[in-house]
Amino acid sequence: MTAPSALSTDEARSRLHELTVIDVRTPGEYAGGHVPGALNIPLDRIERALPDIRGAADRGDVLVVCASGARSANACRILAEHGVDTATLSGGTGAWAADGHDLDRPQGAAPTVWGMERQVRFTAGTVVLLGLLLGLLVHPAFQLLSAAIAAGLVFSALTNTCGMAVLLGKLPHNRPRGADLDRTLEALRNG
Protein backbone atom coordinates (compact mmCIF):
# COMPACT_ATOMS: atom_id res chain seq x y z
CA MET A 1 0.00 0.00 0.00
CA THR A 2 1.32 3.46 -0.83
CA ALA A 3 2.01 6.10 1.78
CA PRO A 4 -0.80 8.59 2.37
CA SER A 5 -0.51 12.00 0.76
CA ALA A 6 0.83 14.68 3.06
CA LEU A 7 0.21 18.40 3.37
CA SER A 8 2.80 20.80 4.73
CA THR A 9 1.74 22.99 7.63
CA ASP A 10 1.52 26.02 5.35
CA GLU A 11 -0.60 24.14 2.79
CA ALA A 12 -2.91 22.89 5.53
CA ARG A 13 -3.19 26.33 7.12
CA SER A 14 -4.15 27.95 3.82
CA ARG A 15 -6.79 25.27 3.19
CA LEU A 16 -8.04 24.90 6.78
CA HIS A 17 -11.43 26.42 5.92
CA GLU A 18 -12.10 23.70 3.34
CA LEU A 19 -10.70 20.68 5.23
CA THR A 20 -12.27 18.35 7.75
CA VAL A 21 -9.46 17.89 10.27
CA ILE A 22 -9.41 14.77 12.44
CA ASP A 23 -6.93 14.57 15.34
CA VAL A 24 -6.20 10.92 16.22
CA ARG A 25 -4.25 11.61 19.43
CA THR A 26 -5.51 10.79 22.90
CA PRO A 27 -8.00 13.20 24.48
CA GLY A 28 -5.27 14.42 26.84
CA GLU A 29 -2.93 15.26 23.98
CA TYR A 30 -5.77 16.89 22.05
CA ALA A 31 -6.65 19.03 25.10
CA GLY A 32 -3.03 20.16 25.28
CA GLY A 33 -3.38 21.89 21.91
CA HIS A 34 -4.72 20.98 18.48
CA VAL A 35 -5.05 22.36 14.98
CA PRO A 36 -7.93 24.87 14.96
CA GLY A 37 -11.22 23.18 14.14
CA ALA A 38 -9.85 19.66 14.53
CA LEU A 39 -12.20 16.95 15.78
CA ASN A 40 -10.77 14.41 18.24
CA ILE A 41 -11.24 10.80 17.18
CA PRO A 42 -8.50 8.75 18.91
CA LEU A 43 -6.74 6.23 16.69
CA ASP A 44 -8.14 3.29 18.67
CA ARG A 45 -11.69 4.47 17.80
CA ILE A 46 -11.14 5.30 14.13
CA GLU A 47 -12.92 2.20 12.79
CA ARG A 48 -16.02 2.96 14.88
CA ALA A 49 -16.11 6.41 13.28
CA LEU A 50 -15.57 5.07 9.77
CA PRO A 51 -19.08 5.73 8.38
CA ASP A 52 -18.99 9.37 9.51
CA ILE A 53 -15.44 9.90 8.27
CA ARG A 54 -16.49 8.41 4.91
CA GLY A 55 -19.38 10.90 4.81
CA ALA A 56 -17.01 13.79 5.52
CA ALA A 57 -14.65 12.57 2.79
CA ASP A 58 -17.57 12.48 0.35
CA ARG A 59 -18.21 16.18 1.10
CA GLY A 60 -14.57 17.31 0.85
CA ASP A 61 -10.95 16.65 1.79
CA VAL A 62 -10.07 15.07 5.13
CA LEU A 63 -6.80 15.82 6.91
CA VAL A 64 -5.68 13.45 9.66
CA VAL A 65 -3.38 14.87 12.35
CA CYS A 66 -1.37 13.57 15.30
CA ALA A 67 1.69 14.77 17.21
CA SER A 68 4.38 13.82 14.67
CA GLY A 69 2.66 12.21 11.71
CA ALA A 70 3.16 8.51 12.60
CA ARG A 71 -0.28 7.81 14.10
CA SER A 72 -2.02 9.90 11.46
CA ALA A 73 -0.24 7.91 8.73
CA ASN A 74 -1.50 4.71 10.39
CA ALA A 75 -5.03 6.15 10.53
CA CYS A 76 -4.81 7.12 6.85
CA ARG A 77 -3.78 3.55 5.98
CA ILE A 78 -6.71 2.12 7.96
CA LEU A 79 -9.10 4.53 6.25
CA ALA A 80 -7.61 3.78 2.81
CA GLU A 81 -8.20 0.05 3.42
CA HIS A 82 -11.88 0.98 3.80
CA GLY A 83 -11.94 3.14 0.67
CA VAL A 84 -11.62 6.53 2.38
CA ASP A 85 -9.08 8.89 0.81
CA THR A 86 -7.34 11.16 3.33
CA ALA A 87 -4.11 13.11 3.78
CA THR A 88 -1.84 13.55 6.78
CA LEU A 89 -0.18 16.67 8.18
CA SER A 90 3.59 16.50 7.66
CA GLY A 91 5.25 16.59 11.06
CA GLY A 92 1.92 16.73 12.92
CA THR A 93 1.02 19.30 15.54
CA GLY A 94 4.68 19.52 16.53
CA ALA A 95 5.56 20.92 13.10
CA TRP A 96 2.38 23.04 13.11
CA ALA A 97 3.44 24.79 16.34
CA ALA A 98 7.11 24.96 15.31
CA ASP A 99 6.08 26.80 12.13
CA GLY A 100 4.40 29.44 14.29
CA HIS A 101 0.78 28.39 13.77
CA ASP A 102 -1.59 28.65 16.74
CA LEU A 103 -2.98 25.63 18.54
CA ASP A 104 -6.48 25.68 20.01
CA ARG A 105 -7.28 24.29 23.44
CA PRO A 106 -10.71 23.31 24.76
CA GLN A 107 -12.25 25.84 27.15
CA GLY A 108 -10.58 25.57 30.56
CA ALA A 109 -8.14 22.84 29.50
CA ALA A 110 -4.64 23.00 30.89
CA PRO A 111 -1.83 22.10 28.51
CA THR A 112 -0.56 18.54 28.84
CA VAL A 113 2.66 18.62 30.83
CA TRP A 114 4.37 15.91 28.79
CA GLY A 115 3.54 14.70 25.32
CA MET A 116 3.11 10.98 24.67
CA GLU A 117 6.53 10.51 23.09
CA ARG A 118 8.20 12.02 26.15
CA GLN A 119 6.11 9.83 28.46
CA VAL A 120 7.16 6.72 26.49
CA ARG A 121 10.86 7.68 26.64
CA PHE A 122 10.62 8.34 30.39
CA THR A 123 8.78 5.08 31.11
CA ALA A 124 11.08 2.97 28.93
CA GLY A 125 14.18 4.54 30.47
CA THR A 126 12.87 4.08 33.98
CA VAL A 127 12.04 0.39 33.46
CA VAL A 128 15.42 -0.28 31.81
CA LEU A 129 17.26 1.44 34.66
CA LEU A 130 15.14 -0.36 37.25
CA GLY A 131 15.81 -3.72 35.59
CA LEU A 132 19.55 -3.09 35.58
CA LEU A 133 19.67 -1.89 39.20
CA LEU A 134 17.48 -4.70 40.52
CA GLY A 135 19.51 -7.15 38.43
CA LEU A 136 22.70 -5.98 40.14
CA LEU A 137 21.34 -5.55 43.66
CA VAL A 138 18.61 -8.20 44.02
CA HIS A 139 18.67 -10.94 41.39
CA PRO A 140 20.05 -11.16 37.83
CA ALA A 141 16.64 -12.24 36.53
CA PHE A 142 15.41 -8.62 36.89
CA GLN A 143 17.61 -7.77 33.90
CA LEU A 144 14.91 -9.42 31.80
CA LEU A 145 12.86 -6.22 32.35
CA SER A 146 15.52 -4.28 30.45
CA ALA A 147 15.64 -6.90 27.71
CA ALA A 148 11.84 -6.83 27.35
CA ILE A 149 11.81 -3.05 26.96
CA ALA A 150 14.65 -3.23 24.41
CA ALA A 151 12.71 -5.85 22.42
CA GLY A 152 9.58 -3.71 22.61
CA LEU A 153 11.45 -0.67 21.30
CA VAL A 154 12.86 -2.66 18.38
CA PHE A 155 9.39 -4.03 17.58
CA SER A 156 7.97 -0.51 17.86
CA ALA A 157 10.50 0.84 15.39
CA LEU A 158 9.99 -2.00 12.91
CA THR A 159 6.19 -1.83 12.95
CA ASN A 160 5.82 1.93 13.49
CA THR A 161 3.48 1.21 16.39
CA CYS A 162 3.91 1.74 20.10
CA GLY A 163 2.19 -0.54 22.58
CA MET A 164 3.57 1.48 25.48
CA ALA A 165 1.95 4.65 24.11
CA VAL A 166 -1.36 2.81 23.86
CA LEU A 167 -1.07 1.72 27.49
CA LEU A 168 0.04 5.15 28.70
CA GLY A 169 -2.81 6.74 26.75
CA LYS A 170 -5.26 4.89 28.98
CA LEU A 171 -3.91 6.46 32.18
CA PRO A 172 -6.18 9.05 33.83
CA HIS A 173 -3.81 11.98 33.28
CA ASN A 174 -3.88 11.27 29.54
CA ARG A 175 -7.68 11.24 29.50
CA PRO A 176 -8.60 14.38 31.44
CA ARG A 177 -12.04 14.13 29.93
CA GLY A 178 -13.47 11.22 28.07
CA ALA A 179 -13.42 11.52 24.34
CA ASP A 180 -17.04 12.33 23.61
CA LEU A 181 -17.05 10.35 20.40
CA ASP A 182 -20.80 10.64 19.91
CA ARG A 183 -20.65 14.45 20.03
CA THR A 184 -17.60 14.46 17.76
CA LEU A 185 -19.32 12.21 15.24
CA GLU A 186 -22.41 14.44 15.31
CA ALA A 187 -20.17 17.45 14.53
CA LEU A 188 -18.53 15.42 11.74
CA ARG A 189 -21.94 14.55 10.26
CA ASN A 190 -23.04 18.18 10.32
CA GLY A 191 -19.88 19.25 8.51
Rank of each mutant, 00 (worst) to 15 (best):
L167Q: 03
S8I: 05
A98V: 03
V154F: 15
L79N: 02
L19F: 13
A109N: 02
L133H: 05
D182S: 10
L188V: 12
I46H: 04
A6G: 02
G152N: 10
L167C: 06
G100Q: 12
C162M: 03
A165L: 09
A73R: 11
T123V: 15
G152T: 06
D61W: 06
A148V: 07
T9N: 10
R121T: 03
A80V: 04
Q119C: 12
L39N: 00
L158N: 10
F155D: 02
V127L: 15
V21T: 14
L145Y: 08
L19I: 12
L133D: 01
L144N: 07
Q119D: 07
R25Q: 11
T159Q: 09
C66E: 00
E81V: 05
R54E: 13
E18W: 02
D44T: 12
W114N: 13
V62I: 00
P42V: 05
V62W: 02
R118P: 10
G163M: 12
A150M: 06
A147F: 11
A165I: 08
V127K: 06
G28A: 02
G131A: 07
A148L: 13
P176L: 00
A95E: 02
I46V: 15
C76V: 05
A157D: 05
A157T: 03
P111G: 14
R54L: 08
G135V: 10
L136K: 04
L158D: 07
A12E: 10
N40E: 01
V128E: 00
I78S: 06
R105L: 14
S156V: 07
V113T: 12
E47M: 15
N190H: 15
L158K: 05
A70P: 00
L130H: 05
G32Q: 08
L134V: 11
T26S: 15
D104I: 14
D180Q: 13
E11Q: 15
